[in-house]
């Protein structure tokens, strides 16, 4: 058991380890005639780092958007399980489930599903501190009159929530950027701030959309370390989209592979690595299809003439 010197638990889930946390059940998502996702099903287990991989345009981000309520799939359900254990306040929580596919995205966030975006979506005019404090939004009360008065509940609340935010700043080593506007920060730092903002929600489930895209090896290593810290120290379950296979195979407990909106493999990293369908999707293969070979031959003949 790892110990941590922090006062606050960053894990917002009340689910005991090993039980199903998120069930994606046969979802299909279409944009007009474009089928972004077709009959995708998998289960994320509490306490796992669950990677979703696939070539570009496979529907990974669409899937994440479905989970966080930004898109609503035409068919299928996504269920988030809660309870069965204790929450971060130490209270026993009854088992229950929420149908994420029917909720608007801010309500999904209120259930503790936090996310980062592929293209950084920070509040660029605000400081790092303000961005992280916004992660506390769902845990705060926002009365207009109390805010105007400042002295009293509003100030007390600001200070109260600052404690957890400072722990996140400490965990992600953002101390020196605390008061800098995020728009002016380096790309790698912005990615870290985005992870921090999601952590401040005290997530039950953390969705990370390419947290290491566009980073050099060193930054990637740092980011992988932060994700593992979050996962091991706080016990947060993570769903991760990533293109770097070394990272994925190293840190994830389970991998789902998408290709053209379909789930082609789902298993442990070793199982997925050996799966012929995955190898074909990533590397392509010599086709066995006679019609394709025929067409290729005719094209060749035409160019010869």
């Amino acid at each position: 058991m790892l110990t941590r010197a922090y006062q606050h638990s960053l894990n917002g889930s009340s689910r005991p380890e090993g039980l199903p946390l998120l069930e994606v059940d046969d979802i299909s998502l279409r944009f007009g005639g474009v089928k972004a996702l077709t009959n995708v099903s998998f289960t994320v287990t509490q306490g796992h780092v669950h990677a979703i991989i696939g070539p570009n345009g496979a529907g990974k981000s669409s899937l994440l958007n479905c989970i966080s309520g930004i898109y609503h799939p035409q068919e299928g359900q996504i269920r988030l399980h809660t309870g069965g254990g204790q929450d971060f306040r130490g209270k026993d929580v009854q088992e229950g489930q929420h149908l994420l596919t029917q909720l608007p995205s801010y309500k999904v966030a209120r259930l503790g599903v936090a996310r980062s975006f592929q293209n950084i979506e920070l509040f660029s005019h605000l400081s790092v501190l303000e961005n992280l404090m916004l992660g506390r939004h769902i845990h705060m009360r926002h009365s207009v009159l109390a805010s105007m008065l400042w002295f009293g509940p509003a100030r007390k609340q600001e200070i109260e929530h600052r404690h957890l935010v400072e722990e996140v700043i400490d965990l992600l080593q953002l101390q020196s950027y605390r008061h800098k506007p995020v728009g002016a920060l380096a790309y790698g730092i912005q990615k870290r701030v985005e992870l921090g903002r999601a952590l401040c929600i005290q997530p039950a489930l953390l969705l990370l959309d390419e947290p290491m895209a566009g980073m050099n090896a060193e930054e990637k290593e740092d980011m992988a370390r932060y994700i593992l810290d979050v996962h091991e120290l706080a016990g947060v379950s993570v769903v991760l989209i990533e293109h770097d296979m070394n990272v994925v195979m190293d840190i994830s407990d389970r991998v789902s592979v998408l290709d053209f909106g379909k789930l082609i493999a789902d298993g442990t990293p070793d199982e997925v690595k050996a799966d012929p369908a995955v190898i074909e999707a990533y590397l392509g293969s010599d086709t066995e299809d006679d019609e394709v070979k025929d067409a290729e031959r005719r094209m060749q003949e035409r160019t010869d003439v």
């Binding site: 608007p104 995205s105 979506e121 509040f123 660029s124 992660g135 939004h137 769902i138």
Partner: peptide, 15 residues
């Protein structure tokens, strides 16, 4: 201010 800067992200953090 979150709504002004990034409304989708604002919604994704529970605003």
């Amino acid at each position: 201010m979150a709504v002004r800067d990034q409304d989708i992200a604002a919604e994704a953090i529970g605003v």
